[in-house]
Nucleic acid binder design. Sequence first.
DNA 1: ACATCTCAACCACAGCTGTAGTAGCGTCAC
DNA 2: GTGACGCTACTACAGCTGTGGTTGAGATGT
Lengths: 142, 142
Amino acid sequence: MKLTKLELEIMGAMWTLGAASVREVQEHLPKRKRPAYTTVQTIIYRLEEKGAVRRTRKIGNALIFEAIVTRKAAHGRLIDELLHVFGGSPRMLMAQLVETGQLTLEDIRELEVTLADIASEKKSATTSAPQKAEQKRGRNPR
Amino acid sequence: MKLTKLELEIMGAMWTLGAASVREVQEHLPKRKRPAYTTVQTIIYRLEEKGAVRRTRKIGNALIFEAIVTRKAAHGRLIDELLHVFGGSPRMLMAQLVETGQLTLEDIRELEVTLADIASEKKSATTSAPQKAEQKRGRNPR
DNA sequence: ACATCTCAACCACAGCTGTAGTAGCGTCAC
DNA sequence: GTGACGCTACTACAGCTGTGGTTGAGATGT
């Protein structure tokens, strides 16, 4: 499922809001680039057709929508695309981030520690409590 | 300067080829998704209008084009956009890469070393031995 | 019950993107 | 010099994307 920039913007609002009416979504967008109500509506309808969103109930005469596609799934897709442009190598991506100073040595070190933690957790999970590994993924839900 | 997917694909070919005719670019694209000659031509014309590419000379009756926009600049722009979606935080991006297993602990460790190298080289470059850093980047292309 | 207000549903449309066909000129091999 | 071929320049067009207007049904306050 491919989402456009504006669709992503709106999904962003819905991920934050949880379940919302068109108006709520529109008002949640940064005022600078806030499209007309009907524009938001149109996009939400399109998202509905794509199956990224669904209408859950009605409050007054207003429909309430909620995201079906998760933020993580959508982000994952974006990353895959970017990675493809970068020849499929995450390292190139990282290198660029580093070169442009968007990622510092500190960031990397911190990440490494975190990552090492996770790795050891995963290890202990497979050694002491077998076949439960599935539940490791998806934990740490932010 | 905003480049579309196909435009990027074609810029990719030109970055690799250095300076090339429309035909060369077309034939350099992976055969699976190789558009018609005139399609490539159209895109190159559009790139020319955008100032991403320029015609340098003529060989026979064929025009030779070369990239003006650098790979790094284009990639940087892509990253900025992605980062914006991720709320501007490179860490979120990294975290996602790690979570999906697209980035391993090894990658990070190696990157850290490389990064440290670059940092120290840069430091020494300004003090003693300039301009050797280029060769560090781009190695390990996986 | 009425005026008002808000939405849903539909419609319109321009610009961008991918895709490719055609006309005609220049070049090259004879 | 002429015929074949390649390339340029131009044109076309459909689908996608962002943008928002219109209309009428339904809700709401009084």
